[in-house]
C-alpha cells in the first residue's frame, strides 16, 4: 500500500512533467520550425561547457587547498598558543621574587582588572544577551549592535579634520607655541614638556633610589 502510494506520488509529477513538455513541444512545433543550429555553433557550445566544467573543477581544488592551508595555519597558531604559557611559567619559575617585588601596585591593578574581566566573562557565559535567541542545533540569531558612528558620520568628521588640521592648514604643535610664549615672556622658565616622556629611564630610577637613600640618611642623622 505504502509502496503503491509512493510509486503513485513519484510517478504523477513525472507524468505531469512529461505531459507538460509534450505540450510545450507541441506548441512550439505548431508555431514555428525548430531553430537551425550549425555545426560550428554546437561545437563551440560543447567546448564552452567543457571549459566551464574544467574551470569549476579547478576552482574547487583551489578552494580546498585554501581551506587546508587555513586549517594548517590555525593548528600552528593553536600550537603556539599552547606553548606560550609554558614559557611564561618557566620565566616565572626562574625569577619569582624579583618580578613580584618590582611591580607591586601594577600587578595588583592588573590582577584586579583581570578579575573583573573573568567575572564579566563568567556572567556572559551564564546569561546571554537578551537580544539573542537559540535555534535548533548550534546556531544562534542575535541582533548586532547598531554601529555607533556610521560611515557618513566618519566621513564628515574626516572632512572637518582635514579642513582644519589637514595639509595646507599651517599648524604647529602646542609644545612649540608654549616655548615661543616662554621665550617672549618677561621671566623665562623651564620648558613645559619634553618630547619624550620616557627619556633617561635608568638615570631617573637611579636618582629616585639615591633620593630615598639620602632621605634615610637624613633621618638617621637627625635621630
Amino acid at each position: 500500500m505504502v509502496k503503491k502510494q509512493r510509486g503513485k506520488t513519484d510517478s504523477s509529477p513525472k507524468n505531469m512533467d512529461r505531459e507538460e513538455h509534450a505540450a510545450h513541444f507541441n506548441d512550439s512545433s505548431d508555431e514555428e520550425a525548430p531553430d537551425e543550429v550549425t555545426f560550428e555553433d554546437s561545437k563551440a557550445q560543447a567546448l564552452r561547457s567543457m571549459a566551464r566544467a574544467i574551470e569549476t573543477v579547478r576552482r574547487e581544488k583551489e578552494l580546498l587547498k585554501e581551506k587546508r592551508r587555513k586549517r594548517q595555519e590555525l593548528f600552528q597558531e593553536q600550537k603556539k598558543r599552547k606553548l606560550l604559557p609554558a614559557d611564561v611559567l618557566e620565566e616565572i619559575d626562574s625569577s619569582p621574587s624579583k618580578k613580584h617585588k618590582a611591580s607591586g601596585s601594577e600587578a595588583e591593578e592588573k590582577q584586579q582588572e583581570a578579575g573583573e574581566e573573568t567575572e564579566q566573562r563568567r556572567k556572559k557565559k551564564k546569561r546571554k544577551s537578551p537580544h539573542s535567541r537559540n535555534l535548533k542545533g548550534s546556531y544562534t540569531v542575535t541582533t548586532t549592535k547598531a554601529q555607533t558612528t556610521s560611515f557618513q558620520q566618519q566621513a564628515a568628521a574626516d572632512f572637518i579634520q582635514s579642513r582644519l588640521y589637514g595639509p595646507g592648514s599651517c599648524r604647529t604643535t602646542n609644545n612649540e607655541m608654549l616655548s615661543l610664549q616662554n621665550k617672549k615672556a618677561p621671566n623665562k622658565t623651564a620648558a613645559v614638556q619634553f618630547v619624550k616622556k620616557d627619556w633617561a629611564c635608568k638615570q631617573k630610577a637611579k636618582a629616585e633610589k639615591e633620593k630615598k637613600r639620602w632621605i634615610h640618611k637624613q633621618k638617621l642623622a637627625t635621630c
Binding site: 599648524r171 604647529t172 602646542n174 612649540e176 621665550k183 613645559v192
Partner: peptide
C-alpha cells in the same frame, strides 16, 4: 591642559 590641546596655527612672531 594647554599642552594637551589640539594643534594651534603656526604664527610668525617677530624675533623668534
Amino acid at each position: 591642559i594647554q599642552s594637551q590641546l589640539p594643534a594651534p596655527v603656526r604664527q610668525k612672531k617677530f624675533a623668534t
